[in-house]
Design a protein around this nucleic acid. Structure first.
Lengths: 193, 193
DNA sequence: CGAATGGGTTAATGTTCATTAACATCGCCG
DNA sequence: CGGCGATGTTAATGAACATTAACCCATTCG
């Protein structure tokens, strides 16, 4: 979840467990003791790996926001035309959301609990990711920028709803459904006001 | 926000302030002291009006879930055909979300912090509200029930995204945009898998 | 060998918090 | 007038929590 490459280390073990717990109970609803217990340790052991509870959250959010942005940018650059780019963004975001529901939830909710040096960086990455979408949408359709941004945010709401409706649909069916709905919604957003 | 009729009382003042704070910082991120201060009192004054912090949250969620369900049911019953019913549901939900962003956020996130006798009742109302939508969708289009339910959840995600993108668009423009996007998404969800 | 280092543990420490107790004020009704 | 119920206040209580201290052991490496 946290490192695509490299050995699973204690750090990443903690990060993964923390993401799961933060998603389920919220940052303030999880104690250091909970965090330690989740990886078979006592609470204070965490300080051997992180400066504190908020540093864990910060690292989680930095990782998510950077991964979303990096791969989003990559896919847009690799796409032939805006239509392909939008499709690639959709597939990427849906894959990520279906594969990492906890991360999506934490990314959506917990920014305010990140301490200040890093909060800005996360915000920056989040905004850049949104702008990647907005840019593609504007190249694809003729609509006001503010409307495009609102449409993108609404689409994220749709795509990120996954964690809350675990789904009796299988993963593939859900992915296809979300793709279809989001495409229709975005296309319609570009239509007459 | 909390009582459509009747004098604004201390209770409702607290409930409104609490909803705002819970939405912004999360249930665990708000103290009794914060709650009191928000209405110009000290923390313990709250116990003259509620059994405890969780009772405040419970009352907020009971109110929201009941209001959503009651008006949703009313509008569906009043509608001529499924097409009108869906339109009425959309308008209702969008109006509610745009008019009460804090309530939508709390409703979405804080159910787990409600103590048990009431959690069930809230869940029941939430589910019934979803089923109202699912029923209309099934009457309107031919699609598997599970797919309809997933589509409704995704649509809620889209509509409830409002609070997170306050919007440089005006309220009316935003309402129209959400309505258009949601309709398109739901229509598409009913199409070929 | 032997010391340093990494990664654990259990005991403080000090804060914040929810809740309760004890006490005050005020308006109404007898 | 007198009392009482509603609504506040400040002080007390006890639990939970984040963080730090003090201590321990294994591995590595000189």
């Amino acid at each position: 979840m946290t490192e695509s490459t490299g050995t699973p280390t204690r750090r990443t073990e903690i990060l993964d467990a923390a993401a799961e717990l933060f998603a389920r109970r919220g940052y303030h609803g999880v104690s250091i003791g909970d965090l330690g217990r989740a990886v078979g340790l006592t609470g204070p052991a965490l300080y051997r790996h992180f400066r504190g509870k908020d540093a864990v959250l910060a690292e989680i959010l930095l990782d998510i926001s950077h991964r979303l942005l990096a791969e989003g940018t990559r896919r847009v650059a690799a796409a032939g035309d805006p239509r392909d780019a939008l499709d690639a963004l959709l597939r990427w975001h849906i894959d990520f959301a279906l594969g990492n529901p906890a991360l999506i939830v934490v990314h959506e909710r917990e920014l305010d609990n990140v301490p200040e040096p890093q909060r800005h960086e996360i915000r920056r990455a989040q905004r850049a990711y949104v702008e990647e979408w907005v840019g593609v949408l504007l190249r694809l359709h003729d609509l006001p920028e503010e409307r495009a941004r609102a449409a993108v945010h609404a689409t994220f709401g749709l795509l990120n709803s996954t964690p809350h409706s675990a789904g009796a649909l299988g993963r593939e069916a859900m992915a296809a459904l979300l793709h279809a709905m989001a495409t229709a919604a975005l296309t319609r957003a570009a239509g007459p006001a």
